[in-house]
Structures are given as structure tokens and as C-alpha cells.
Simulated assay, not measured.
Amino acid sequence: MTTAETTKTPAALGPRALAWRRRRASAARFWKEYRRHRAGVFGLAALVLFALVALTAPLTVGSDVSSVTDAPGRPLESPSGHFPLGTDQFGRNLLGLVIWGSRVSLLVGLLAAVLSVAIGAVIGITAGHFRGWYATVMMRVTDWFLVMPTLVLAIALATVMSRSLGTIVLAIGVTTWPTTARLVRAQTLAVESRPYIERAKALGGGHWHIMSRHVLPNVMPLVLAQTTLIISSAILAEATLAFLGLGDPTVVSWGGLLQDAREAGAVSSGDWWYLVPPGVAIAVVALAFTLCGRAVESVLNPRLGVSR
């Protein structure tokens, strides 16, 4: 936008330019409030660092780091100058494996969280809008998923389906959506009780118009905050399923590294370098996403009064 355009009054701007101007102003306000949360800034910095490490993994460690036949070291070497984190049971560089595994763990966590939040948002919005028998059925299904152990359901799905990353994403996504559905439905009921919704209905607004133009924009902040919180749970769930041997054996992930360490007897033999790096990586990423989620939730809902 040029200097002349920035000095125009809102009435002189076109609808599209005015919309973009409001979005930029809203984003600036959000970032200003977000920066006040030190924990959230720390979490964001950690996530940016992990994202850069994952994106640059093909350049820094190469795609052959997981090759068993071309392993550069001896099995279970302790950390040294050549291998900062030691080697695994096949003689592979453990630092390279941890870096390469970040790609799979972060990708599965993000995709599973998006799937979970999408299912929960759709069910929550529709159940809050249509009500009646549809809402009753959807909420009873949601309650059933809430009382069932999430990990048990995910293990059951991962067991009966093929062992692949898609299976892991599906197993996590379809078992972690009930909380989002409950929260979104409550927010939808609050939004639809406002007077402008009645005016929109009186003017002929249909169900799709009400849900997409009025309800969805108002529940999006809640959906965004819920997504950042669920990602950490999804990463932990992926690591758990991989540790239990239900992940894709052809890919490297942090949970898969812990599973390999268990099979190699790293716990009993005292090979701590095989267990600590992937475990710490999982804990730090999960904590970073949680800190970001809490900060986003606090910014979007200042009444929470989260300490900064």
C-alpha cells in the first residue's frame, strides 16, 4: 500500500482495501499483545528454531542419514567429537537421526491437530446451530468419545489399519476432537443468541450464510488457540504410538528412536545418549506449543488473566 493510500479515510478506500487494512491492524494488535507474554515468545522462538532445523535437514544431515548399510560408526558409540550425540544400535549418527526425525514428528503433529480441530469445529458449529435431535445425537457421540481413553482408541485404530504415517494422523485426529467440539458448540450458542443473528435470519440469511459469515469468524480465535494446544498432545501421541511399535517402520521419528532404544536395551545397558536426545526433543516441542497456545488464548480472551 502506498503512502497516498494509507492517508485515505476508510470511506475513500474500496471494500477489499479496507478489509486488508483492518486485517493488518488486527494482526499488529495481536502481535503487540503477544509480545507481552514472555513464555509465549520463548515458545515461539523454540518452534521457529525446530521448524528451521526440520526444513533444512536435507541440507544439513542428508537423506541418507537413516541408511543402515552406510552407517558411519560402530554400534552404540558414546558421544564424541565426531558423533556429538553418539550412535544408535546400527552405528548411525544419532544427532542426524534426531534432526531428521523432527520432520516426521512435527508433520504428524500438525496434520493430526488440524484434522482433530476441523472435525471438532464442524460438529461444534453444526450442533450449536441446528440443535434439536441432530445436536442431541452429536453431543451423545461426543460424550462417548470423551469418556473413552483416547490412547486406547488410537492404538485400536492403528492396530487394525496399515502401519503408515497416514494411519497415525487418522488415529490421533479422530480420537482427540471431542474437547474442541464441546468448546466450539458453547461458543456457537453464545454467538447465535446475539441480536444481529436474528436480524440476519429475518433478512433471509440461510443456514450456510449464518454459520460461515457470522458464527465461524467469531469462533475462529477459539479454534486457533485450541489448535496450538492440541498440536503438543498430537506430537506426544505420535511418539507414544511409535514407541509402542505402531508407527511406520520405514521412517525416522522421535518416538521411533525411543522404540529402537528400548529394543536395543539402552535402558539396562546405560546407553543414555540413545534415550535422552529424542526424549528431550519431544518434551521441548510439546512445551513450546503449550506455551504458545496459552499465550494465544490469553491474547484472544483477556478475561483469562494468564500471568505474563
Score class of each variant (00 low, 15 high):
S80F: 11
L52I: 14
L287K: 08
T56K: 03
I282G: 02
T175I: 02
V174D: 00
T159D: 11
V137Y: 07
L216W: 09
W144H: 01
T179E: 12
S307V: 15
I231G: 05
S164D: 10
S269N: 15
L203P: 08
A39S: 14
T290A: 14
G128F: 02
G256Y: 12
M161S: 13
A118L: 10
P58D: 04
W133R: 13
L216T: 09
S78D: 11
L47Q: 05
F90C: 01
S80K: 12
G40Y: 06
D248I: 02
G86Q: 06
W254F: 00
Y196Q: 05
Q89F: 12
R185W: 03
T240F: 10
A46Q: 09
V117Q: 01
I282Q: 02
T142D: 04
S269E: 13
T176E: 10
Q259L: 10
G173R: 02
W273R: 07
A234Q: 06
V169A: 05
S212V: 14
R21V: 07
D248V: 00
V122A: 10
I230N: 11
M1E: 09
R294N: 15
M139N: 10
G86M: 05
A283S: 12
W100Q: 12
A242E: 11
L115Y: 04
L216G: 01
P278M: 08
G43A: 00
G305T: 04
A295Q: 00
V147Y: 11
A202S: 14
I235C: 04
G247A: 05
V276N: 07
Q187S: 13
T159F: 08
A295E: 00
T290I: 09
V114P: 01
L95N: 09
M211I: 10
P10M: 07
Q226H: 01
N301L: 09
P79H: 09
L224N: 07
V299A: 06
S116T: 13
Q187Y: 03
L95E: 13
W254H: 06
T7Q: 11
D64F: 09
G14K: 00
I119P: 02
P277A: 06
L44Q: 02
A45I: 10
V285D: 01
A288E: 08
S269P: 08
G132P: 02
P58L: 04
A28W: 11
T250N: 13
V306L: 14
W273K: 04
